[in-house]
Amino acid sequence: MEHLKLFWSRINIPKVITACESAHLWPELIFLYCHYEEWDNAALTVMERSETAFEHPSFKEIIVKVSNLEIYYKAINFYVNLHPSLLTDLLAVLIPRLDLPRVVRIFQKSDNLPLIKPFLISVLEKNNSIVNQAYHDLLIEEEDYKSLRSVIDAHDKFDHIGLAERLEKHDLLFFRQIAAIIYRKEKKWNKAIALLKTDKLWSDAIESAALSENTKVATELLTYFVETGNKECFVATLYACYHLIPYDVVLELAWLHNLGDLIKPYEISIAKENQAKLNEVYADLKKREAKERENEVDQETGAGAFGQRLLLTNGTGMNSSTASLGFQPTGAGFGNGGF
Results as ranks from 00 to 15, higher is better:
Asp171Leu: 06
Val250Pro: 03
Leu262Ile: 05
Lys185Gln: 13
Leu278Gln: 13
Glu21Thr: 07
Leu221Trp: 05
Ala271Phe: 13
Ala276His: 04
Glu280Leu: 09
Asn274Ile: 10
Trp202Asp: 15
Ile116Leu: 02
Ile270Thr: 07
Glu141Pro: 01
His136Pro: 04
Glu292Ala: 14
Gly307Asn: 14
Glu296Trp: 06
Glu292His: 13
Ile140Leu: 12
Phe225Trp: 07
Trp39Phe: 15
Pro265Gln: 14
His243Pro: 00
Leu238Arg: 07
Ser110Asp: 09
Gly302Met: 15
Ala42Gln: 07
Asn41Ser: 13
Gly304Gln: 13
Glu289His: 11
Asn81Arg: 09
Leu325Glu: 12
Tyr242Lys: 05
Pro84Val: 00
Leu100Gln: 02
Ser85Phe: 02
Val46Tyr: 08
Thr313Ile: 14
Lys74Phe: 11
Lys291Leu: 08
Tyr36Met: 00
Arg166Val: 04
Glu143Ser: 15
Lys286Leu: 12
Ala154Asn: 11
Leu87Thr: 02
His24Phe: 11
Gly338Ala: 12
Glu296Met: 15
Glu300Pro: 06
Pro118Gly: 01
Gly315Pro: 01
Trp255Asn: 15
Asn336Pro: 02
Glu165Val: 05
Glu70Trp: 06
Glu142Ser: 10
Leu138Cys: 02
Val16Ser: 00
Thr52Asp: 04
Lys15Val: 07
Glu289Ala: 11
Arg105Val: 09
Pro329Gly: 11
Glu70Leu: 08
Leu222Gln: 08
Ser85His: 06
Trp189Glu: 03
Asp144Gly: 10
Leu285Val: 03
